[in-house]
Design a protein around this nucleic acid. Structure first.
Length: 439
RNA sequence: GGCCCCAUCGUCUAGCCUGGCCUAGGACACCGGGUUUUCAUCCCGGCAACAGGGGUUCAAAUCCCCUUGGGGUCACCA
């Protein structure tokens, strides 16, 4: 099942890997893997002013984080000047290009438009119209000796034997120029697939003002790479059935260019959050703990005094309650720190307007519980109180919850008690009695 | 502005190529209900779209044209 499919992903290292670029990389990757082909990574660093080594590294890091690997490269265009020059000379000799002199910029080379092609076939869009006579002779080698984009791109794709060019449809209007170069140089024409762009939530082109635009942004915001990959895969492509949560393997099996649609899509952060929460729920707790570790450290929580077993239990308990990684920290801070923020509304409703005797009873009875790691013992203890007072369980659980973590929502009350431990539980109940119930 | 591309629920989309099975399906969000010690999860139900106008046809979301709207591109940037 070998294949001659060869695609490439050619980022220019002038900034972080954009989410749109990531999706382009993903589609190339899925296409290559689906067809048992190869993917080339090529760094298009011909803009000497804007290209940086840091950006290159950041892009490579993002690719790795997303789990998108490649089979060849990374090539750097800045190291391939000889190749481009050879082809420039060829065009010059054939009379298909000519020198232009600019008093300020220096001597450059322009490609001479002659061909009157009328269009090309695009896998996604079908037949694309174009009228080459409308084109102007364009620069293929800049005065600084570096090739211009449209030229370097074609030479590399030709030399590297790229069979399919999958890129954003903002390149649609470049394609006729590039085809002209393919023909002038005698390269076989690759197949083109121009995929729709990703727009911001307001429907305009995604830019800094839309908040998170780079892969790095999503990483620091606490999204899982698998969730990002799944989400952006579905922005412009669908497997053809109703399943939305797909493993990489499923995506590879299902991916075809034919199922990529033509319409640009808007980035929906809410749906991403939902999908991320799904991936969080499905992640083995051990892995989730490792993902969470940096955020716990960042928040300066006392993670070092805590046992692995305890942390695992806490994460297990809370994994259905957070959508992004840092949310876990927000939710569980009271488990790490004694500086609790008591929510006013919760205190009013469950403590001040409640029955003070309840908390005092709970304090006394809990004091007698020997084994706080026994859910059974904790439960029978609290049940006995509600029986005595003849009240529903919620009437007791809520005040205790607020007393222990400061808010009216948390995981199950017995588990909360267990993870907090006897000392903290008693201390906090005591604190509550003295602070909120003393008058 | 010239040229190019696009147009299904608020959003992502299925259906369009190969007209009829579409009283247009799914998901997120939203609204209601159930489960639950709270919240979340989970389950059930609901709201909600073929941009407009002309054709072609027995029949159009599906094919054609126009209008409108959106996007892209017009660099010695990629």
């Amino acid at each position: 099942m070998d294949s001659n499919v060869k695609v490439r992903f050619p980022p220019s290292p002038t900034g972080f890997l954009h989410i749109g670029g990531a999706r382009t990389a993903l589609y190339n990757w899925l296409f290559a893997r689906h067809n048992n082909g190869k993917m080339v990574l090529r760094i298009e660093d011909t803009d000497r002013q804007r290209s940086t080594e840091e950006a290159t590294q950041a892009i490579l890091d993002s690719m790795e984080w997303l789990g998108l690997d490649w089979d060849e490269g990374p090539y750097h265009q800045s190291e391939r000047l000889e190749i481009y020059n050879e082809h420039v000379e060829k065009l010059l000799k054939d009379g298909k290009a000519f020198h232009v002199d600019d008093p300020e910029k220096g001597r450059a080379v322009r490609f001479k438009i002659t061909d009157e092609l009328t269009g090309f076939d695009d896998i996604v869009h079908g037949n694309i119209k174009s009228d080459t006579s409308l084109l102007e002779d364009f620069v293929i080698r800049k005065a600084d000796g570096f090739p211009a984009y449209n030229f370097a791109c074609v030479v590399d794709d030709g030399v590297m034997g790229i069979t399919h060019i999958i890129r954003g449809d903002d390149h649609l209007s470049n394609t006729p120029r590039q085809i002209a170069i393919y023909k002038a140089l005698g390269f076989d024409l690759p197949k083109f697939a121009h995929i729709p762009m990703i727009l911001g939530e307001d429907g305009s082109r995604m830019s800094k003002r839309h908040g998170a635009t780079s892969v790095t942004d999503y990483r620091t915001k606490g999204y899982l790479p698998d969730a990002i990959v799944n989400f952006i895969a579905l922005l412009g492509w669908s497997p053809g059935h109703d399943q939305e949560l797909l493993t990489r393997q499923e995506m590879i099996e299902k991916f075809t260019l034919k199922r990529v649609n033509k319409t640009s899509s808007q980035f929906d952060f809410t749906k991403l959050d939902w999908m991320n929460s799904k991936y969080i729920q499905d992640l083995p707790v051990g892995d989730l703990v490792s993902e969470l570790q940096p955020y716990i450290k960042d928040a300066n929580l006392e993670s070092d005094v805590v046992s692995d077993e305890w942390l695992h239990k806490l994460v297990e308990l809370y994994k259905e309650r957070f959508r992004t990684l840092p949310e876990f920290v927000t939710l569980t801070t009271p488990f790490f720190s004694d500086e609790i923020e008591y929510e006013d509304a919760a205190v009013q409703k469950h403590l001040k307007k409640g029955n003070p005797a309840l908390i005092k009873d709970a304090y006394e009875k809990l004091k007698e519980v020997k084994d706080f790691s026994s859910i059974e013992e904790l439960e029978s203890c609290l049940r006995s109180i509600t029986t005595e007072h003849n009240i529903g369980f919620g009437k007791l659980a809520q005040p205790i919850r607020v007393a222990l973590i400061g808010k009216s929502a948390s995981a199950g009350i017995f588990e909360t008690l267990e993870l907090l431990g006897k000392d903290k539980t008693l201390n906090r109940l005591e604190h509550t009695i003295n602070t909120f119930l003393s008058d």
